[in-house]
Simulated scan of single mutants.
Amino acid sequence: MNDIHFNRRTLLAVTACAAASVAAPALWAQPRLEKTKIAIAVGGKAAFYNLPLTIAEQLGYFKAEGLEVDISDFAGGSQALAAVEGGSADVVSGAYEHTITLQTRGQSFQAFVLQGRAPAIAIGISVKAMPHYKTIADLKGKRIGISALDSSTQRVVQLILSRAGLKADDVNYVGVGTAAGALTAFRTGQIDALSTVDPVLTMLEQKGEIRIITDTRTLKGTAEVFGGVMPAGCLYAPLDFVKKCPNTVQALTNAMVHSLKWLQTAGPSDIIRVVPEAYFLRDRALYLAAFNKVREAISPDGLIPVEGPQTAARALARFDPTVKLSNSDLAKTYTNVFAIKAKERFNA
């Protein structure tokens, strides 16, 4: 039944693309877009993980490409993916590794522009709840906050546990989102540890409430955890959508790479001017401090490193028996064709 649903959804999306190609007006010096109205599902829009998406939206880069983009925010990446699988969205803004796990289920999704070249996820224990913490083994039986079940925040926990000889179900996972909900759950004792992204991490660090035990906010920290370059946030969609609507995908990629280029030179005043006030968690200085911590994790050009998919697959295979490196066709899970064109256009 799921396969029938998936094929029917894909058929509808492809039909919409074909219909839109007739009606969409020709854009200046650009190929005609197959589809101009695009729905993007994102897990934790206010998190730095998805900052390039927000910048592209706020600065009008999608509109400049002839796109009318509607962004729906969910608690975690797995829920954003479910929106695309269910047909209510066209594209996911989320973790690259989902394309690999989807392949094991017989579903073909493809990432086409990278937002983060490091996951920028950290795991920290509550200083109050676990004052005597010494090793990863101490997490056994504890409640760990994650954005949502089957999200990248949960997968980082599972990877760390596996390396310490623990099983994925040796801890209790609690979905708390990535913003105010995560803060509240942590501070009220609903969870003992937290796997999340900034700016929440930096706020808890500055208040001395959390002790970071695993950190992938830098390239060095990412290499230590994953053993290599680990592609993170990206835009990905059903492979049929990418094939049938290449001009639309190129327009989306152009907007994102334009955003990434802007972020490479953006100063504090630029960030404060563009990012919505609600994202600051009532503390602009803290938000900027968090931005400086994750800046290195932001992709400079939208290209997925060729060794990145292999790193992601190896990490998943450690705790997910359905992921087998010998059976994975990683070349189908991503493409750099669109990002290369966008990079040339914007000199990114």
Rank of each mutant, 00 (worst) to 15 (best):
M1I: 09
N2Y: 13
N7P: 04
T10G: 06
T15P: 03
A18V: 13
A20Q: 09
A24F: 13
A24E: 11
W28R: 12
P31N: 03
P31C: 02
P31I: 00
R32K: 14
V42L: 09
A46W: 13
A47T: 04
N50S: 06
L51C: 04
L53K: 12
L53N: 05
I55C: 05
A56S: 08
A56P: 01
L59F: 07
G60E: 07
F62M: 09
K63Y: 07
I71C: 04
S78M: 08
Q79L: 14
A82W: 11
A83Q: 14
D90M: 06
V92L: 07
S93C: 13
A95S: 11
E97W: 15
T99V: 14
L102M: 12
L102V: 07
T104R: 15
A111Q: 09
A111P: 02
F112Y: 09
G116T: 08
A122Y: 12
A122V: 13
S126Y: 08
V127Q: 11
M130L: 13
K134T: 06
R143P: 00
I144S: 02
G145E: 06
S147G: 09
T153S: 01
T153M: 01
V157L: 01
L159S: 00
A164F: 00
G165P: 00
A168Y: 03
Y173T: 01
V174K: 12
A179P: 01
A180R: 15
L183I: 09
Q190W: 07
Q190A: 09
A193Y: 14
S195A: 12
S195N: 08
T196N: 13
E205I: 14
Q206N: 10
K207Y: 03
E209G: 04
E209H: 09
R211V: 02
K220V: 05
A223R: 14
A223V: 06
Y236S: 01
P246D: 02
T248L: 04
V249C: 05
A255N: 03
V257I: 11
G267F: 14
G267E: 13
S269I: 12
I271H: 06
R273P: 01
E277M: 10
L281R: 13
D283L: 13
R284I: 03
R284T: 07
A285I: 10
L286K: 15
Y287E: 03
A290N: 03
F291R: 11
V294T: 12
V294R: 11
R295H: 08
E296G: 03
E307S: 08
P309G: 01
P309W: 02
Q310T: 07
A312R: 14
R314F: 00
P321E: 08
N327M: 15
D329Y: 14
F338G: 01
N347A: 12
N347F: 09
N347Y: 10
A348R: 15
